[in-house]
C-alpha cells in the first residue's frame, strides 16, 4: 500500500491505495468522481482523459502513485457557476449522443486549446482527436463543438 495525496479539482485529497491502483480507479472509486469514464481500458478510447499538472493524460494508463503530489483536473472541475465554454459548445452543437466519450472529449479539447490556441481549424482538430474515440456521432458535431468552444474560451 502507498499513501498518496494530490489536489483534485482544487481540493486536497488523499488515501491509502494499492500500488497497482490506476489513477482512474482512484478518481472513480475512492473520490467517487464518476465523470471520468473507463471505455476501452487499453489506452485507446480516451474516455478517461484528465489533466495532470495541466496536461491531458489517459487516467487508465497512469498509476495513482505516479500522480502523487500532482494537481489533477477532471470533467467535474472545469465548470464554475455556469458550464465551461467547451461544455456549453458540446450542448449547443449536439456534440454528443450517448455521452459516454464526452468527458474525455472535453478534457482533450481544453488541452488542445491550452497547447494550440483558440483558433483551431477542422484538420487540426481531427488530427488532435487521434486519442479519443466516439462510436455515435461520426465526429462531425464534435469537431464543430470544439471549434465553437475553443473560440469562446
Amino acid at each position: 500500500m502507498t499513501s498518496i495525496s494530490m489536489v483534485v479539482n482544487g481540493r486536497s485529497v488523499g488515501g491509502e491505495v494499492e500500488d497497482r491502483t490506476l489513477l482512474v480507479e482512484f478518481i472513480r472509486e475512492n473520490l467517487r468522481l464518476t465523470g471520468t469514464h473507463v471505455g476501452c481500458d487499453t489506452s485507446q478510447c480516451g474516455a478517461c482523459v484528465v489533466h495532470v499538472d495541466g496536461k491531458a493524460v489517459k487516467a487508465c494508463t497512469t498509476l495513482a502513485a505516479q500522480a502523487n503530489g500532482c494537481e489533477v483536473t477532471t470533467i467535474e472541475g472545469i465548470a464554475g457557476d455556469e458550464l465551461h465554454p467547451m461544455q456549453q459548445a458540446f450542448k449547443d452543437n449536439h456534440g454528443l449522443q450517448c455521452g459516454f466519450c464526452t468527458p474525455g472529449m472535453i478534457m482533450a479539447a481544453t488541452d488542445m486549446v491550452n497547447r494550440l490556441g483558440k483558433d483551431l481549424d477542422e484538420k487540426t482538430i481531427r488530427a488532435e482527436l487521434e486519442g479519443n474515440i466516439c462510436r455515435c456521432t461520426g465526429y462531425h458535431n464534435i469537431v464543430k463543438s470544439i471549434q465553437d468552444g475553443a473560440s469562446k474560451m
Binding site: 489506452s43 489517459k58 482533450a108 488541452d111 497547447r115
Partner: peptide, 8 residues
C-alpha cells in the same frame, strides 16, 4: 500514439 500518450 496520440496527444495524451505523448504527454507521458
Amino acid at each position: 500514439g496520440d496527444p495524451h500518450v505523448r504527454n507521458m
